[in-house]
Design a binder for these strands. Structure first.
Lengths: 353, 353
DNA sequence: TTGTATGCGTTATCAA
DNA sequence: TTGATAACGCATACAA
């Protein structure tokens, strides 16, 4: 009863139908298994047969189906780059492109394709349909509800950036504490005694460790923390507004700010200049991220850089390794950061205004 | 690893194994077919059975496999956004994010997932493995060799931007000729009589139609074309260098430039200012694209805008329609453009320098 | 070294 | 209304 005769015999070729490995096998006069072995360069096949099959494959212009090939192996062959709020204005989110470059290099040389999910819905769809074998997570915040779903989905995932301690995911992080420390040290060396900290929104994973690092650095160098600000977003507008409100409240600003975001730092500089303060004479500002806009700022922004492209390519590599070896041991890697000195920092000039 | 006999029967649940529709069927005491019918809300199923199956699905937290579900339908369920040179510096390629936003909206509401291919290799891999059902093409140039492969692959594809006439692909294009025309008219109205054109690299699809449109506009308004430039890239550096070399050759520049790229225009402005020319007093400049940087430029750039997000979402919608209806009739749609007047254009001031 | 047979997880076509 | 069962296109134990 399983020998149900096929409607179509071999006589007529159906133009609409995809050509399959069976067609190739029949044409070459071998079994599908042999064709498969040739396609995968298995050594246990007769060179003559191999060449003949290869010729047939080429002549018929046969390409295996990606989905069908992965199905028996219990995988999809797709990875995802997941980043909520990803399609926002690029000035507020300049982190995806460098990541894409790093991931692209790895994907190029792998057998995987790359999905991009830039909305919560796309991310949860991916999870629910089992449409990817693993995920790279970028720019997630504590209140992004998808992290919960990802954690308990069991899907392999690698986080680039700060993330919680108690997790089954692997995490590749820039050395945020050191980034704050070298920023503070740079300002101290220039002669600043009163420094403010701008840490961005508190609902981010890096917030707490940065706060602690700043406090410690300040204390170690015998400086005073003055005029620190909290901003609701990592945007220029956020930084601008925060500084303006500081001034409007009549608070005397410090002589320097350390920000954990270039965008915020640029906003602060603009606000300060609009308040007729000279940067860096009256106010020095350090950012974080070394985004393209930081180089273009007036004055060009001193900032702390990490190699996001490298981190992303390492993340992709690690993710593929996890998928292929099924070694789900979470790993944590810390990446070095470096200070890029430009013109937004300098010695404080008392009474310059 | 395939026909490996199961060590354990139904008694103990194998944690490593994905739960399949068969597991659910067995648990619910029905056939897989019935479960499938419930999942697809087929009306021909007994309400009691339906509810019971739904409950079982929920209890077992069962999610159908995306790949297995699409395989019998002869499709993959994935679309691709393809853009060569995509991971370059975001300042030279600010077009992908708005596109991503538009496409994301459509993908969110569809049953498709979105692949992103930012290198030639990723694009050809996609083609060769049949890993996507269709492609959206952005920022392709005439000498991108992949267009040839895409054309003859037969895969459904929609191009956003300029593209050749003789093609089986659908094309959604901003109205480039009008963009040039309104730019020239704006300058004429301000009193400019000698205008230069900067059209970017000649190996792009929009080059020729733009050139023609500029010539016609100039002629119709009785103006003179002076000091037109060709740049090898759509970058700030390109624009900067081109203008500097004009000056260094001793050529007297026109009083205004129309550029087909914001990046180039910004580069020209910087070069002019470095040559001690006032913008817009000595030189007015119009760009194209309305990229974020155009608003931040000093002075803010007058430019021509098109709605890239809308075009991209329309492209995604059209692509899905093509795939689902199998109507491969190529379509062409032209999208309106509008002038955004900022401070980089003004009346020419003779002898201002 | 090669072919056969089975499984991957689902949908669709039957027959019951 | 439901249940077997054949595809979908491929990879791979196992037999030959």
């Amino acid at each position: 009863m399983m020998a149900r005769p096929k409607q179509r015999a071999t006589i007529e070729r159906d133009e609409n139908k995809r050509i399959s490995i069976i067609d190739v096998a029949r044409e070459a006069g071998v079994s599908p298994a042999t064709v498969s072995r040739v396609l995968h360069n298995k050594p246990i096949v007769d060179p003559k047969v191999r060449d003949m099959v290869r010729e047939t494959v080429a002549r018929m212009n046969y390409r295996p189906s990606f989905a069908a090939r992965n199905l028996p192996m219990g995988r999809t062959g797709y990875l995802a780059l997941a980043t909520p709020r990803g399609s926002q204005n690029i000035f507020t989110n300049p982190y995806v492109f460098p990541s894409l470059e790093g991931i692209g290099k790895v994907v190029d040389e792998s057998s995987f394709h790359l999905i991009i999910a830039t909305t919560p819905k796309q991310i949860s769809n991916l999870l629910e349909t089992h449409a990817v074998d693993g995920m790279i997570l970028i720019q997630f915040q504590m209140d992004d509800t998808e992290v919960e779903a990802i954690e308990k989905s069991g899907i392999p995932a690698v986080v680039v950036g700060a993330y919680k301690q108690d997790t089954r995911l692997s995490v590749l992080t820039p050395d945020y504490p050191t980034s704050v420390q070298i920023a503070v040290e740079h300002l101290a060396k220039l002669g600043h005694r009163e420094i403010g900290f701008i840490c961005g929104p508190p609902n981010t994973f890096k917030w707490r460790s940065n706060q602690i690092a700043f406090g410690e650095s300040i204390q170690q160098l015998g400086l005073r923390e003055v005029g620190s600000l909290v901003t609701p977003k990592y945007t220029e507008e956020s930084g601008y507004t925060a500084f303006r409100s500081l001034i409007e409240k009549g608070t005397k600003p410090p002589t320097a700010f350390v920000s954990t975001s270039d965008n915020i730092a640029i906003g602060v500089i603009n606000a300060a200049q609009d308040c007729h303060l000279k940067v860096p004479g009256d106010l020095s500002v350090i950012g974080y991220g070394n985004i393209p806009a930081s180089r273009m700022a007036q004055p060009p922004l001193t900032t702390v850089a990490s190699n996001l492209t490298l981190m992303a390519s390492d993340a992709a590599q690690l993710l593929i390794e996890i998928i292929e070896t099924k070694n789900y041991q979470p790993r944590r890697v810390k990446y070095p950061v470096s200070l890029i000195t430009r013109e937004s920092t300098g010695p404080p000039i008392p009474g310059a205004t």
